[in-house]
Amino acid sequence: MDYLFAVLLSSLSSASILLIATIGLAVVFGLMGVINLAHGEFIMFGAYAALTATQQGVPFILSIPIAVLLTMIFGALVEILIIRRLYGRMFDTMLATWGLSLALYQCAVIIFGTVSPGIGMPQMSIAIGEYSLAVYPLLMIVVAASMLIGVYYLLTKSVYGMKARAAIQVPHMARAIGINSSNTNTLTFAIGCGLAGFAGAVLLPIVPATPSMGFAFVIKSFLIVVVAGPVTLAGSALSAIGMGGGASVISSFMTSVAGDIFFFALTLLLLRFYPLGISSRWRFKL
């Protein structure tokens, strides 16, 4: 019984970690229709930004906003220099971001080498019966939930959010009423990247910064966004919990390989029945 509870709790934290890594990708996909294949490398960017900040003596908690800001600025640059010029050319956008992902990976190897010291995880644990769980990963459940709520409010209640949704739903109409859709898109992409940077920074104690760390997330993140479909935010949350959490539960009772197989098999099954994502027939829009 204790085991079951411990497993459920840690699986929820696994799903939350996955969701944290995915939200930025989902926002960019949902609002711009762009799949950013360099998303994983933006996570890495955030992780290195936070790591470098802590090495300069900045407390970890403060290094997170620094990382978010830097990643946002970098994301805005990428949007202005590359993404904007390829707007409407979906495949070309994917290829360009793919090229970017490899270039960023190699840059990280050159600048930071392949290993950097980690920052360690807070040595705190809680006990559930005879099982002990590290606190920091559990904290990610709260982080993921706050991220979801924050992004939801940003997109529904802020002026920017309304503009962004208007720009994607009826671009010509948005232009006609004076919304500068290219500025909105720059901001959207920057926010998506900022969320990736946040993920890299906040997950740094769990996932050490390495040039290839983005790779560890992208496969599952991409699949979650694809399975989620057009209602990206709620869809991603649901598929992250279902697929990521499910895989984690399976891993806990069987083997890690079985968990991975579950994840991919479920993806195939869902796409067979919902080729455009599980949310393709939902009514609401976020």
């Binding site: 497993v7 840690s10 997330f217 968990g259």
Partner: peptide, 20 residues
């Protein structure tokens, strides 16, 4: 015993199994 794919970064399930 547990064998991990190269891309595993989250060890929570394994920690549970080790404790069990």
């Amino acid at each position: 015993e547990d064998f991990l794919a190269l891309t595993v970064t989250d060890y929570a399930p394994i920690l549970q199994k080790i404790q069990a």
